[in-house]
């Protein structure tokens, strides 16, 4: 029997697949914190008791990119470190998302010099930008909820599919 599924076409029950997989994935985010600078202190306060991102299902940081869903780039990235960042991103499995945490990761922050990358979106795709220097924990939670909205409403592949990028 010939399989009639073509990737361009919308498979049957795609809307249900999107909803179910999105619901599952948005409440089981495994983060990879790529912490390089002082925003890391804010990340710690978000992750621990008082603000507690475990309420959003993102409480378990994985320090291996192969087990993570969301890369959280926390802090300044310079040119020398950008190669490491890109390698870590390439090692993560699909589906994956990236969050730029703070002004430095988003646009370079106050640093505009010979060494600093002016925002990580120059070398990899970024899905949520969290502003602030450093951002308040409420801003981080807001960014996390934005990411959850995005995951809920985007298209999901039921089967593994090879990506070009």
């Amino acid at each position: 029997m010939e399989i009639s599924y073509k990737p361009q076409e919308k498979p049957p029950y795609q809307n249900a697949i999107d909803r179910i997989l999105g619901w599952g994935r948005k409440y089981s985010i495994f983060m990879y914190p790529f912490v390089t600078a002082c925003c890391g202190m804010e990340y710690m306060s978000v992750a621990s008791g008082h603000y507690d991102i475990d309420r959003f299902g993102a409480g378990l940081p994985r320090f291996s990119p192969r087990q993570a869903d969301v890369m959280l780039v926390v802090g300044t990235i310079n040119f020398k470190n950008s190669v490491v960042l890109r390698t870590v991103w390439d090692q993560m499995c699909e589906p994956k998302w990236c969050v730029a945490f703070g002004a430095c990761a988003s646009i370079g922050g106050p640093y505009n010099n010979y060494a600093t990358l002016q925002g990580i979106d120059r070398i990899l795709p970024v899905h949520v930008y969290i502003p602030g220097c450093p951002p308040r924990p409420e801003a981080v939670l807001d960014g996390l909820m934005k990411l959850q909205d995005m995951i809920q409403n985007q298209k999901h592949d039921l089967f593994w599919k090879k990506r070009e990028s």
Binding site: F79, S82, R86, D121, I123, V126
Partner: peptide, 11 residues
Amino acid sequence: QPILEETWPSR
């Protein structure tokens, strides 16, 4: 002098 090629935006 960036090491990686910079494309903007690269999402």
